[in-house]
């Protein structure tokens, strides 16, 4: 059954182009059936009507865990680190009455803060632009059943393709690396025959872009895999490494 709880929030507030800091808010009478973002809605309504400052800016859209918009560090953990759960699907029943919750933006050099809890994750799109697709023009495609694909491969590709691009892997990584994100895309196309003609170029270009944008290096500590709300596995990182080594060895071939 739902009940009402009171919480203290320490929220990161940052204006555009300025340094930020934590500010404390009281969240009173929060229904335990509410989602984390709905709790923030309630707090924002109060801030708005008080009229002393602007409501807390946070990114969100679908609120059903698939668009990848939402995400903050909650008590130091991405999306609050409830296994395989995005922040919008985290419910307040997991918090205790009287608890203090620290909420701050995803931190990484490649994710500069725009305002409050909103960060710029456009780097992830730039990595995809380097080859996170099959270059097929509309109209080029052969009949869909021409190439049978082993069920296991299709399933493994789907495991990788489930990435929602929220950036939690980057924020959770001690090095701010985008390896899991990049690996998921590279893996999807390394597993499926459709991705093979471009596989050499794809992995090289995507890795090069990842480095250029200031993401860190992978030190195989697997924080990303714990943080991923879709449970993308580090086997994809191993596969990315393999693809990269293969691409290097097949130089000029």
């Amino acid at each position: 059954m739902s009940e009402k709880i009171n919480l203290t929030l320490k929220v990161w507030r940052q204006k555009r182009g300025e340094a930020g800091g934590f500010k404390t808010y009281e969240a009173k009478g929060i229904d335990t059936d509410a989602s984390f973002l709905e709790m923030l809605d309630v707090v924002n309504d109060e801030i708005t009507l008080k009229g002393e400052e602007e409501p807390i800016a946070f990114e969100h859209d679908c609120r059903e865990g698939i668009c990848g918009c939402c995400g903050s560090l909650v008590n130091g953990k991405t999306h609050g680190s409830h296994e395989r759960t995005t922040l919008c699907q985290l419910h307040m029943r997991h918090f205790k009455d009287g608890e203090t919750i620290v909420i701050e933006p995803f931190r990484a050099k490649a994710f500069p803060v725009i305002k409050d809890l909103i960060v710029d994750r456009s780097g992830l799109d730039q990595i995809i632009a380097e080859g996170g697709y099959v270059s097929v023009k509309t109209g080029n495609a052969p009949e869909a059943s021409t190439t049978p694909i082993k069920k296991e491969l299709a399933e493994a590709a789907m495991d990788a393709a489930e990435c929602i691009g929220c950036g939690a892997c980057v924020a959770a990584c001690p090095n701010g690396a985008a390896m899991l994100f990049t690996a998921a895309k590279v893996s999807q196309y390394a597993l499926l025959p459709q991705g093979h003609p471009e596989r050499t170029q794809r992995v090289k270009n995507m890795v090069a872009k990842m480095d250029e944008l200031g993401f860190g290096n992978c030190s195989n500590e697997y924080e990303c895999a714990v943080a991923c709300p879709k449970g993308i596995d580090v086997k994809n990182i191993a596969r990315l490494n393999r693809e990269f080594i293969k691409a290097t060895l097949s130089q000029g071939k």
């Binding site: 697709y133 099959v134 097929v136 509309t138 109209g139 080029n140 495609a141 052969p142 009949e143 869909a144 059943s145 190439t147 049978p148 694909i149 082993k150 069920k151 299709a154 399933e155 590709a157 789907m158 393709a161 999807q188 196309y189 499926l192 459709q194 991705g195």
Partner: peptide, 23 residues
């Protein structure tokens, strides 16, 4: 509708498949 499936498969969309490898 049929062209869409052809195109999306060519794009590498991991549609569900049967054990024979077909869609």
């Amino acid at each position: 509708s049929n062209l869409i499936i052809d195109h999306c498969v060519a794009q590498g969309i991991p549609f569900a498949r049967e054990y024979g490898g077909y869609l």
